[in-house]
Design a binder for these strands. Structure first.
Lengths: 229, 229
DNA sequence: CGGACGGTTGAGTCTCGTCAATAAGCGTGG
DNA sequence: CCACGCTTATTGACGAGACTCAACCGTCCG
């Protein structure tokens, strides 16, 4: 794949939107496209990190492994999003494992390229800082969930978050992955996740149909978490 | 307090180490020193964020509050460290509450100052990115703890982390705050934390004396967590 | 002295995870 | 087209780990 193509892919990523044509070209010189089949491992915990990744299409899961071999999903990366930027800056080994959930097209951008643009373009630095801040913010939310909320509340919170904010009317959403992965993401066993969804269904708040979930009354759902929590 | 003093305080902070004298002066113009008594609240969740903070001396805790009013300690900030940088970039309201644990001297640096330096100095941008990356890395560790480890393992992990890395000999450490706060930090109740420490004492692995804890054999302690998990 | 605070200990409860059995989809290949 | 295996999902019975509630102790401080 030529570097022209890489350039175009880069240009579509939010992180790189404001870069000049020259900067894009420069960056493209440090980039590689990767076509990866579903289920492939990109890197494991402990691997050296020589750059960051971005998803053009497909999905990638970032996971932790317990000593007993239980997998915990940290994040599910969607098209347009990137990952491993933070590790790249620290020069530490990867703290998580990355695996594709679907056949995917990824970009890998070497650290050198990023550092060059960074040195030249203050706006880019701000963009990266903003991106990293969002990550951090998301993690704070996660820790908050795990620490303070019950299984029921975590599921409700997740469902509401999947909705476009401010939806006060009935709405339908599609789970971003299979239920096992979502459960892990929420730090639940698949069994518990299933039971909670049933509970919501019986309470008349949700209608579950495979990965499709219809929420008849988001506001009521939100309240339900507080009482029955 | 004059801006000269602020300049000197800023110069001592790791985050600003590599700034030029002129940049320090500029930054100082946007900074204020704050003397804060123990137990004072700096800001609450939801407050607007107009800049970042750094601790010169004293300690600050960042906490979350559950709807039921239970407090969860996210982080304990020590001298030389900073906080709220990430929120500043997002322009979002504060996601946590900040309170001093001791009489403290803090610096508050307005967002405008940071953005100016950022635009002018690529090295500063890299420093901030590195700082943010470390934060993120720490959060990953936390999530890992909360998700995959038992109470016993969390306590052991915490104790070992407090040791200077690679201590294979008996060592003594002092808890950075009272046991209630540490317990919260580890996502445990004070009762559970106390019980776990007793368990370690009975196993001959730790000797608890108020906030002083002596670990007779860190390596054995590490192993103990895996078996008795 | 009395009270607040920090810490420990015990007894009971409950949420959630574990284990196990059973469906229900789904792609493959005969 | 259906049988087969594999993954995904559901449901039940059971158990364990951590939280809750409560009593109690030591110490510091007004």
């Amino acid at each position: 794949m030529s570097s022209i193509d890489i350039r175009q892919q880069l240009a579509h990523l939010p992180l790189f939107h404001q870069l000049s044509p020259e900067q894009l070209s420069e960056l493209a010189g440090h980039g590689k496209t990767l076509r990866v089949d579903k289920g492939e491992t990109l890197f494991r915990r402990g691997d050296a990190c020589d750059g960051m990744y971005a998803v053009v299409y497909g999905k990638v899961k970032l996971t932790l492994m317990s000593p007993q071999g239980v997998e915990k999903v940290m994040e599910i990366i969607h098209p347009g999003q990137s990952f491993a930027e933070a590790v790249m800056f620290l020069g530490k080994p990867m703290p998580v494992e990355a695996q594709t959930l679907e056949d995917s097209l990824l970009l890998h951008i070497g650290a050198a390229g990023i550092f060059q643009i960074l040195a030249a373009d203050p706006n880019f630095a701000r963009n990266m800082l903003a991106g990293m801040s969002m990550r951090l913010h998301g993690m704070v939310r996660d820790v908050e969930r795990y620490s303070l909320e019950s299984a029921l509340q975590r599921v409700i919170g997740y469902l509401l978050q999947q909705l476009d904010a401010g939806a006060d009317q009935p709405a339908t959403l599609t789970l971003e992955a299979n239920k096992n992965l979502i459960a892990s993401r929420l730090n639940l066993t698949p069994e518990t996740f299933s039971r909670v969804l049933q509970q919501l269904a019986k309470a008349g708040l949700a209608e579950v149909n495979g990965r499709e979930i219809r929420l008849s009354d988001p506001a009521a759902l939100s309240r339900y978490g507080l009482d029955a929590g």
